[in-house]
Structure formats: C-alpha cells, structure tokens
C-alpha cells in the first residue's frame, strides 16, 4: 500500500506533469474555440505534422542531456533529405537509399561531435558553423533546384498507411519507444544522465566522456537522416535552401518545455514528446482559429524562455548538491 501510494505520488510529482497538464489545457481551449480542432481527422493531421519535429526533438533531447547543443539539425536534415532524393532520382533501390541516407546522417552527426571534442570548440560554435556548411553543401549539390519526381516506392514511405496510422507516425512512435527503453534500461542510456548530471564525478568514475559525446551526436545524426528521408518522402519534393530552417529552435523548444535542462542531466522522452505535441498543436490551432500563423515564432521563442525560467526555478529550489 505504501509502495503503491508513493508510486502514485511520484507520477504526479514527475517533471513531465506540468507539461502534460498544460498540453491538455491547450487542447481543451482550442477544441472550444475551433469546432474542427477536436476531430479524428484533425488530430491525425497534427500527428502527421509533428513526426519530423518529434524525431529530431528526441535527438536534441539527448544532446541537451549531456550538456550539448545542436544548431545544425535543420541543415543536416536538409542535406540528408536532398541526398536521399537525389539517390532516388538516380534510380537506386529504396532500401539502399534509406541505408545510405542513414549512414550519411550518422557520419555527419559524428563529425559534429568529433569537431567539438577534438578541436575543443564549444558545441554551439561548432554547430553554428556546420549549420551553414551543411546547408551550403546541400544547396551546392542540388544547384539550388527543387528535388522532386521521386519513385513510387520512395513516396510510399511517407504516405502509405500501416493499419490505422501512417508509416511516419508509426516510425515516430517506434523511435520514441526505443529511446524511452534505452534511456531507462540501457547502461549507456543511464550514462547520459550521469555525464550530464555531474561531469567531474563521471570522469572520476573512469567514463570516457568525449567518446560518449561523439556517440550521442552520431545518434542524433542518425535521427536526422531518418527525418530527412521522411521529409522528402512526405512532401514529395525538397528544396535545400528552405527545408526545415527553424528546426533547431522548434526542437530545442520541445525538449526544454519537456523538462530537459540546458545544463544537462535531465530530460525525458515523455516530456519531449509532449513538448512536440504542444508546439504542433499550437501551430495547427492558430490556423484553425484563423489567427495569424506569424504568431508561431513568437510563441515558440516565448515558450523557450519560459522553459528556461522554469528550469532555473527548479534548479534554485533544489539548491546545490
């Protein structure tokens, strides 16, 4: 009984609780304001819309968890997307296209990590640079042209349904579940919390912190490869210069709202997923209530700052430890 009670109270005192409640409140508010909001159709549209951001936000979560930061996500996604599209245009079998895209994403993600670790440059500066480099390369290889005319098999990834849900949604759910399991049960997953929570203690334990960092950025790159594939396939076309240009802020917002701590050591799959849902819902809801979509950036920024403040208050409350 005592055990049970404490578990229940732990659920209600969980870091994710405020965001979940807040998401539900916003959902309720939009449902009242826009008659078409709370319909199965619209909800599945929202789900479809958030898959790409959702997958990238999970990568961002583990990067932030170890005290890092990745500004290059949008550019890397774009680069992976155009590579995938071009390989498909060149007639490669879809399976090979998928495989190569994931490999490219992973490699370039690891490159971010390597530059940070080997050149001793802060994460934010490295990814600020690679943000521009990746984007530039993507534009260069496509000669600023739209990449389109994909094969049916390729388009199939983003559009077809597996049962009730589309493949992208299923992929997102799968990634989220795998992440949740890994972060909870995989020893490496626990190490991420350790590295972010107390770096000195982690070093003293004999953990190879640089290698952890490179691996985290590699995983992040893998997810960006996946997201790039989905992007090209879902929209049926991709333009290197304009694809996912504000993705880094959207996903950072999702992670921070979801309870990730900018100094590292905290963050959860559940929180980030709800953070993504919240931002996706606001975007959709603004359109539904015929409000200007231009509010979106402002709200995203405000929400990021708000999340930072909440973070700070939680830290201050905990005191030093």
């Amino acid at each position: 009984m005592k055990q049970h009670k404490s578990r229940l109270s732990r659920i209600f005192s969980a870091r994710e609780m405020p965001i979940i409640v807040f998401t539900l409140l916003v959902y309720g508010a939009f449902s009242v304001m826009a008659p078409n909001f709370n319909t199965f159709n619209n909800v599945s549209v929202i789900a479809q819309q958030i898959t790409i951001n959702g997958i990238v936000a999970l990568g961002m979560t583990i990067v932030i968890m170890i005290g890092g930061m990745d500004l290059s996500v949008g550019s890397l996604l774009s680069l992976c997307g155009v590579f995938a599209g071009m390989m498909d245009n060149a007639g490669l079998p879809v399976a090979l296209t998928v495989l190569l895209t994931l490999v490219i994403g992973t490699a370039l993600g690891a490159l971010n990590g390597l530059l940070i670790v080997k050149l001793h440059i802060p994460d934010i500066i490295v990814t600020l640079a690679t943000m521009n480099i990746f984007r530039g390369v993507a534009v260069m290889v496509t000669r600023s042209q739209w990449i389109t005319d994909f094969s049916d098999a390729f388009l199939h990834i983003g559009s077809s349904k597996g049962g009730l849900f589309s493949i992208p949604i299923l992929l997102y759910v799968a990634v989220a579940v795998v992440f949740a399991v890994c972060l909870r049960w995989l020893p490496f997953g626990r190490l991420l919390y350790a590295v972010g929570g107390n770096r000195e203690a982690a070093v003293l334990m004999g953990l190879n912190v640089p290698s952890v960092k490179i691996r985290v950025y590699a995983v992040n790159g893998f997810l960006l490869g996946l997201a790039g594939l989905l992007f090209a396939s879902m929209f049926g076309s991709i333009q290197a210069a304009t694809a996912a240009t504000s993705l880094q802020f959207q996903t950072m917002g999702s992670a921070l709202i979801g309870g990730a701590n900018i100094f590292g050591g905290a963050g959860s799959v559940l929180g980030t997923v709800f953070g993504t849902i919240l931002l996706g819902m606001i975007k959709n809801g603004l359109v539904q209530i015929h409000a200007s979509e231009y509010w979106l950036d402002f709200i995203t920024g405000a929400v990021i700052l708000l999340a930072l403040l909440v973070n700070l208050i939680q830290l201050r409350k905990k005191g030093r430890c």
Binding site: L186, R190, Y193, A194, G197, N198, M205, G265, K318
Partner: peptide
C-alpha cells in the same frame, strides 16, 4: 550524481545488476 536515484549512484555501470545488457 544528483539527478540519479540512490540505487543508480551505488551501482552505476556495475555489470552485476544487468541482465542481457539491460539494467
């Protein structure tokens, strides 16, 4: 590690509390 549980602090990285590679 302030953000981990007591049990984890005691056994972090300890193979004896893992089965099939999972904690």
């Amino acid at each position: 590690f302030p953000n981990l549980t007591v049990a984890e602090n005691i056994f972090l990285g300890d193979k004896s509390v893992q089965s099939h590679g999972l904690v």
